[in-house]
Structure formats: structure tokens, C-alpha cells
């Protein structure tokens, strides 16, 4: 992770006082997480230094809030909606497919590092197309275990084709 980029990302967060600095820790981490897909220890140190706090404090937040990751993710990142609509329409089977065919659970990455899937405990808000997954701002809805497996296969093949060329 390029720490210069991290510094640049949070450069405009200039708290007026101690209280505001506290309020901005989450915002700073969100920016880093969004840009890199995770927050490394070094990045956590940069954030802590910038806002006058400590790494353990920052890690307390990283481990509490579900959106953060502390490890790098795969080349592609997919959100699998497991909200109630998706559950009712069969997202449990998609989770099971991941477990059976790829041996990964929530937040797991495929063996070749191609794809990380995060199970969303909330809702992606596209309930009439349930069950649905999101990847690179594209939605793939009304999935069955078969079409979902095809999708994952396609993504893995694409990533590997891209890496080979």
C-alpha cells in the first residue's frame, strides 16, 4: 500500500479540535478502505498519526465495523446480498454454493486470489431482483446456484485471462 497515497487521501481532513479529530477517524479509514479494499497496519499508523490517536484505537474500529478489511482482497470483489428478501428468494443456496464449490465463506477469497466475496448482512436495495450480487457497480440478479456458479467461473476465467495476457 502506497502510504503517500494514504496521506493524500486524508490530507483534507483537518479537525478544528480534539472532538472533531475523533469523529473523523472513521471517515479517514473509510476512504482508505474504499481506495485499497483494506486498511494495512502501516495505513492505520498514518491515520492514527494524522488524527492524533493510536493504532490499537484504530484497530478497535477496524475490527468492529463490518465494512473494513485488514487483509488485501482478491483481484475482483463481489458483494453477495443476504438481506431478508434475498434470503427468502434463496441466497442461502448461493452461500452454500460458495462453500461447496470453492470452500470459502463470508469474506473468503478463491484459491487463486481471483475473487473475494463478502456476504452483506444488510441489504443492497434491489429486492425485486433477489437474490442478487454486485460487482464493479454491476448487479447480477435472480440468481440460481447454477447461474451463480457460472458467474463465479466466468469471473475467475476473466481474471486469469487478464493475468496471462
Amino acid at each position: 500500500m502506497d502510504l503517500a497515497v494514504v496521506k493524500e487521501l486524508i490530507a483534507d481532513l483537518n479537525p478544528q479540535d480534539w472532538q472533531e479529530a475523533q469523529e473523523l477517524i472513521l471517515a479517514a479509514l473509510q476512504r482508505v478502505n474504499e481506495r485499497f479494499g483494506y486498511v494495512s497496519v502501516e495505513a492505520a499508523q498514518v491515520v492514527a498519526d494524522h488524527l492524533g490517536t493510536t493504532v490499537p484505537r484504530v484497530y478497535g474500529l477496524l475490527t468492529f465495523y463490518a465494512d473494513f478489511r485488514t487483509e488485501p482482497r482478491g483481484k475482483k470483489f463481489m458483494l453477495l446480498c443476504h438481506g431478508m428478501s434475498c434470503y427468502v428468494m434463496g441466497s442461502q443456496k448461493l452461500v452454500q454454493t460458495l462453500q461447496d464449490n470453492y470452500g470459502i465463506g463470508d469474506g473468503g477469497t478463491t484459491a487463486g486470489g481471483e475473487l473475494t466475496v463478502q456476504v452483506v448482512n444488510g441489504c443492497l436495495g434491489v429486492c425485486d431482483r433477489a437474490p442478487i450480487v454486485e460487482m464493479d457497480h454491476e448487479y447480477y440478479g435472480k440468481l440460481t446456484p447454477e447461474t451463480f456458479n457460472d458467474l463465479v467461473q466466468r469471473v475467475i476465467a476473466q481474471v486469469n485471462a487478464g493475468a496471462a495476457s
Binding site: 469523529e23 472513521l26 471517515a27 463490518a66 465494512d67 473494513f68 448482512n121 444488510g122
Partner: peptide, 8 residues
Amino acid sequence: MRTGGGAY
């Protein structure tokens, strides 16, 4: 404005 981090 503050944003949350995915904790119900």
C-alpha cells in the same frame, strides 16, 4: 455528515 461502517 457522518457515515457508518456496517454495524447494525
